[in-house]
Design a protein around this nucleic acid. Structure first.
Lengths: 329, 329
DNA sequence: CTGTTAGCGCGTTCAA
DNA sequence: TTGAACGCGCTAACAG
């Protein structure tokens, strides 16, 4: 391995001079700079980022906390988009990324996780999908030991920024579009888990719509489960004009139930996953740009690491209809 | 930040003694070990892995090269499984992982990528989905600069191990199961891209079956595209008894085409993705355990980094039928 | 069994 | 404008 020392020798200058050229310091003559650059070229020198990090003690490293535990594999798509968004932005900002599945942290206390992160020189964390039950993650965020960005969780503190869409408005919008296409009087709403952060927000959205449109609103909790939504649909959908679901997976469950029941009801989902296109009928969904959200999250965690204050970031959303023909490649 | 020096002082021993305790060296008295451990405890000392890596020059770091470019979002599932398998195993083996989407390397030469990896102290690479067109990746593997594991690519050299299932046998098995259920004389086979590594292997498998069973075999290239498979099905399926596809996505395209054509033909896919369960009819697929494959890949790259020789690893597969009810949660 | 010493590769004073 | 010297936090001989 060729080190900075070799370059210095080859160029006939001191190590520190090479270092300065490398890091673009101003006080270097054109002449020396050229000599050094040439030596670097000739020796094919590659700076050792490990050593650099140790020496400068400047090392931006973040952990991406992803939770595949309460999802079926069908929505891995969302996490892949989260990942690509984060990785792209991280590379742009020259931040190192450690991808961590929350399952890998299972059973560990907040202190242990903190320990692990510190030993890895991680100073920022982006959390995708923290639930109210994740007590350790809550603790982690509240400890303010790390710069945190939480996705879709309405919580901020001095070192924590939240990034997400306006779930209240999004749910309102997507449902409104659905009933605009098919007028309705009675609406079945399949909500998420009772204690979910977004559940209440989305519920507020649908309540507002029901009030405005003077709809008879029936609310059932589908627990974000396809099967539960399916069962709820079997029980209550015949009696409703429209079925609105707080997640795509539940919408798919509802749709399949309706097919089995052999009745038609307009259904809308929420997340905007491709899978929606495969279920045969078109459905409205919120277009959440997971890539953009994640990209923004990394930007925000960087700001925090640079000393910024935690804040709330609302990303825009739009509404789309999913067709099979738009998805097939 | 509390360092090893503080611990040494606090425990009243030398720095190296602390280091030895930390790394579990044998020649340490129980007494000292206890003292040091206590000091570590009291100061809440966390070893700096960066410094450790620099000093020991031992730093197992691998890059996961993932290519979402030629896939629809529908099969992100495969990549998530690859990821979890790799990350879990990496944590077990204490290997650091850098996740890289191949798109992030687009336009870079082999030398530039090599440079980047070296600067990141990456010594091992796992490549998921390398095609014959990826000239730079080919070059990278052939350069032997890094310990490489390629997934589903039948190439090995002194520093390259290949991991994958036996595509020939797998294709044979899944198709055989399909025609066992529904006897057939004429079989439409929708193959992958003409230049794909696995395309030929799978083709061999189906050819062998056709010969054994004396089937009339019609082969068309679906380019691993759902739409192309759909079009091929429209054109040729009416004339066949069974449709065998070299990928799940193509199987889905074929199935949807058959539904539109309003005729029934048994269809089988290959990859075993959950999405198969959503298309309405049951289909046979190869059960590839992506998690296990990826986990094994990381083990293998570790062996290579420790000086092992490249080799070929064949992972087992089984055949399953996909039902919606097995998938819904 | 323990402590001393010499680096790992680099960034950063501070003189010259 | 340049370079010698020191230190980042740790590991690994070697000496005691």
């Amino acid at each position: 391995m060729v080190s900075i020392k070799d370059v210095a020798k080859h160029a006939g200058v001191a190590i520190s001079t090479v270092s300065k050229v490398l890091n673009g310091y101003p006080n270097i003559s054109e002449e020396t700079r050229r000599k050094v650059s040439q030596a670097i070229e000739e020796l094919n020198y590659i700076p050792n980022s490990i050593a650099s990090a140790l020496s400068s003690k400047q090392f931006d490293r973040i952990a991406l906390l992803i939770d595949p535990k309460r999802q079926t594999q069908a929505i891995d798509q969302i996490f892949m988009q989260y990942l690509t968004g984060a990785l792209d932005k991280a590379k742009e900002l020259n931040i190192e990324v450690i991808t961590v599945f929350i399952s890998m942290l299972a059973g560990q206390s907040c202190a242990e996780i903190t320990r692990y992160f510190l030993s890895q020189s991680i100073s920022g964390v982006v959390i995708y999908g923290m639930s109210r039950e994740d007590k350790v993650l809550q603790e982690l965020v509240q400890s303010r030991q790390f710069s945190c960005v939480v996705i879709d969780v309405p919580y901020t503190n001095s070192r924590t920024t939240s990034v997400g869409v306006d779930h209240r408005k999004a749910q309102y919008d997507v449902a409104k579009k659905t009933i605009a296409d098919d007028p309705c009087r009675k609406l079945l709403y399949i909500a998420g888990r009772k204690d979910g952060y977004v559940t209440d927000l989305r519920l507020e959205g649908i309540r507002k719509l029901a009030e405005e449109e003077k709809l008879h609103l029936v609310v059932k909790h589908g627990e974000f489960s396809e099967r539960t939504a399916r069962n709820i649909t079997f029980e209550y959908a015949a009696d409703a004009d429209v079925v609105v679901c707080a997640s795509d997976l539940m919408a798919i469950g509802a749709m399949n139930a309706l097919i089995d029941m052999d009745i038609f009801r307009p259904v809308c989902g929420f997340d905007g996953i491709t899978l929606m296109g495969y279920v045969g009928k078109q459905m409205n969904t919120v277009r959440q740009d997971f890539y953009a959200i994640s990209s923004r999250a990394v930007e925000e965690v960087k700001l925090l690491m640079d000393g910024g204050e935690g804040k709330e970031v609302i990303m825009p959303h739009s509404i789309v209809k999913m067709y099979y023909k738009d998805i097939i490649v």
